[in-house]
Design a protein around this nucleic acid. Sequence first.
DNA 1: GCATGATCATGC
DNA 2: GCATGATCATGC
Length: 441
Amino acid sequence: MNCAAYDRTSPESILEFAKRLSGKTLAETVDMSQVTENLRNKGDLGSLVEKFFFEYEPNSSSEPDFPEAGVELKTTGVKRKSKGGYQAKERLTLTMINYMELVNENWETSSLMEKCHLMLLLFTLYEKEVAVFNRRFVLEPILFKFPADDLLQIKLDWQKIKDKIENGKAHELSEGDTYYLSASRKGSGGENEAPKRQPFSNVAAKARAFALKPMYVNRIIDIHTVEAGVLEVAKNSGIEEATKVKFAPYLGKSVDEISNLINCYKRGKNDKNFQRRLAMRMLGAVGSSVPEIDKAGIEIKTIRVNKNWRPFEAMSFPAFNYLDIINEDWEDSKFFEKVEQRFLFVIFRKGDDGETRLEKIQYWNMPYLDREEARRVWELTRSRVAIDASDLPKSRESRVAHVRPKARNASDTLLTPQGTHLVKKCFWLNKNYIGEVIRNI
DNA sequence: GCATGATCATGC
DNA sequence: GCATGATCATGC
């Protein structure tokens, strides 16, 4: 059970608590076995979160959901953008418009502002066929207050909507009337939908709600994605320190302990991404990347070693194309790029007791002489591909690197200069080499 | 126990 | 569907 440990009177406490959802689904976070209601796709995620995560009964009053803190909870769907990042799936509905009452309100005391002056925004990745409680929370939650710069336009939008109702034209309201805040259609839309009364006309109007337009929600997302890096680089005097701070609480802990601490579990028996996922989550990643790490071009590698600090495996890099490599120069190659990269090793060590622990994290980049050796292996590979692509440098031919398959299966092949199809291969850093590196630092 | 070959699981 | 990171499998 989720013993709702937060302070209902404090927005910051509510926000901190909400972060427990990051990267997870509601069903992964709380026990929902009690849920018997019909909650497939149509279920309202917002009320489920209120009920099962924050553990209070949803209200539909004009008050915010957390009245003492003045915080209104909103969950909203986002989609991935092709170039990375997220965008709003749709407008963010704030509250229903009551045509009869809105005309008696003024902005300062409006029911809209009373309810929504401070909002906790939670974002889930929208997937059509997935039940709402199995949709993943992505992005960090945001405590959102309208910036002063936007507030004027929001107020003008609100006024425009109000004016239209005062002119007896509630039925003519349109999203296009306004900019940030809109009067958006909200209702079943079918024949059975009851029309609403409006105060200054006998014409019935369809139900509408105040909503933030999708583009406005996109801007909220963009601003927070850019600003809210997870590493607090500035505060921690640089990226390396910032990452070390993130890992520090978990050093020496077993994989199981860490798994439980950060609620990130092995998915199957052979979950080959598990330790990497753990590493990313320890860093605070919500998805599978940490913006600051990407920006700095840091190559994160998890390494499993035995009690003698010998790696269980060599380290692989992306596959190369036989036809491309013969015309490439070393410095234009993918492997060159990798070898020049700064690495962050996340080292898990299997102890005498058979327990695997996070032993150490370590920054590293390849010394010059070893890069020259990598270059030799690469050039050797290039010339041998041209002659016989099936005969490429083995690990015994170099202290540093070798070439080996890297494919989905035997039929995952590429064309060679000899006209044959060979299983895809890539450059690997030798197991022994990696072992020396991490034992010497 | 290592080298080498082969493939898995995941995310996009 | 594919690239990627990672691990499994086998034979010596």
